[in-house]
Amino acid sequence: MFRILKISGDSLTPEYRNGDFVLVSKIPFLLRPVRAGDIVAFRQPGYGLLIKMVERLAPQGGGVFVVGTQPDSVDSRVFGEISPRQIVGKVIWHIKDRIA
């Protein structure tokens, strides 16, 4: 239901940095479906558990296009859209080691 994850990598900098913690959950999706701007954790074959930002939803088929904020991010530009079933949860709390 809830999961605490530690971020590894820099593809979502500057907002989400290497070493930050996030609390993710699927509960928000009970209230409204995934939408652009959501930060989501998902499992991707070959890459494992990833965290990216939803850029857009496919008009048909339900595919979710996820991206990082850095140009060399490995994301949907590399592996294509993900299925909503791959999503582990949406970030509902961001715990960072610095003053915002």
């Binding site: 971020i7 820099d10 593809s11 979502l12 913690f21 558990l49 965290i51 060399d72 715990i95």
Partner: peptide, 23 residues
């Protein structure tokens, strides 16, 4: 809270969510 989570992570090893970049 961050420091607390760091301790928990060191003790139990929280799962990593990779914000993966390719070099």
């Amino acid at each position: 809270i961050y420091k607390l989570l760091e301790v928990i992570d060191q003790k139990f090893g929280l799962e990593r969510a990779r914000a993966h970049c390719d070099i």
